[in-house]
């Protein structure tokens, strides 16, 4: 997995609350058995009409004229389906972090398993950040994983939660499956004790 320490980028704003995984990636794109190429389908139905023509001035493409690595979203981001395709699509589109005041549990795990950092901030910080980006779309946002802090000019700085284990995984590029495989002995011991 890629490593994450610091992210310095302008942000794409999707300020609606309760953005569900069907909006992030509609179910009809989940038929492939690969995990590549979902970035093109990100927020598809917000970007394209029923005939597949790009909607002019849509909220996503109008903000993506240059590469941005941070997505700033309304409360309860990623609710709904467990599809990891949602995290794959966001990461594949070049994002490294999503900022919101809360994340659905399964989306949060999926994001962490794909080195996509969920940055949970207070409602007040999120509202201030959204308003600052609205008035200056070029505003740079800084995310620093070692100090677990996010800051932007005129908004201030706030700390965000991430447990120590996950933080180390993200900074060193480790994944949960490697950890589990390294502890197979404990798993076998658990099975033996339970069956005894």
């Amino acid at each position: 997995m890629r490593k994450i320490t610091e992210i310095h980028s302008r942000a794409v704003l999707v300020p609606t609350e309760n953005i569900d995984t069907d909006q992030i990636i509609p179910a009809r794109f989940l038929k492939t058995t690969s995990r590549e190429g979902f970035g093109e389908k990100l927020f598809y139905d917000w970007r394209y009409d029923a005939d597949g023509r790009m909607i002019e001035d849509n909220i996503i493409d109008s903000q993506m004229k240059e590469r941005k690595c941070i997505l700033v979203a309304g409360d309860n981001f990623g609710c709904g389906s467990s599809r990891e395709h949602a995290a794959w699509a966001i990461a594949d589109a070049g994002f490294m972090a999503v900022v919101s005041s809360s994340f659905a549990d399964i989306f949060r795990n999926n994001a962490l398993n794909n080195a996509l950092l969920p940055v949970q901030v207070s409602h007040g910080f999120l509202a201030a950040l959204i308003s600052a980006i609205r008035s200056d779309p070029e505003l740079a946002v800084d995310i620093d994983l070692p100090s677990q802090s996010i800051s932007a000019k005129g908004v201030g700085t706030e700390r965000f939660p991430v447990n120590g284990y996950k933080k180390e995984c993200l900074m060193k590029g480790y994944s949960d499956i490697d950890y589990l495989l390294a502890h197979k002995d404990s798993i076998l011991r658990y099975e033996a004790e339970r069956d005894a």
């Binding site: 399964i106 999926n110 499956i177 589990l180 495989l181």
Partner: peptide
Amino acid sequence: GIGTSEVEMVFATQ
């Protein structure tokens, strides 16, 4: 419910 990376973890280690 779990994501696909977690499905892989259960396959590999239960």
